[in-house]
């Protein structure tokens, strides 16, 4: 790739006109004026000082892992339709 010294570029006049159109069309990105940031708020499960579990689970010596491998998921994935195991071509 690097051997190709002639880099493909768009003509300058096309770039300039496209940018002018884009700037006119884009408007101003939305501002979050009505919201304020809460500093120090950590998402659930990210406070590694605390045990996020009930005292029952927290003192259990039972292994958290399931014994049997759960081969088939249960849940919303039953509502996925189509889709063979082989991914389709992007289109």
């Amino acid at each position: 790739m690097k051997a190709n010294t002639l880099k493909s570029t768009l003509p300058a006049v096309m770039v300039a006109s496209a940018v002018a159109m884009a700037v006119a069309a884009a408007g101003t990105p939305a501002k979050a004026a009505d919201k304020e940031k809460c500093y120090g708020v950590v998402k659930a499960g990210k406070n590694d000082c605390a045990t996020a579990n009930s005292s029952c689970a927290g003192t259990s010596k039972a292994d958290g892992q399931k014994d049997a491998f759960i081969a088939l998921p249960k849940g919303v994935c039953e509502k996925l339709v189509g889709g063979s195991l082989k991914p389709m071509k992007k289109g």
Partner: peptide, 10 residues
Amino acid sequence: AIHRNNMVLT
């Protein structure tokens, strides 16, 4: 074992 279990759950 309790510590290990807590690690996995957390």
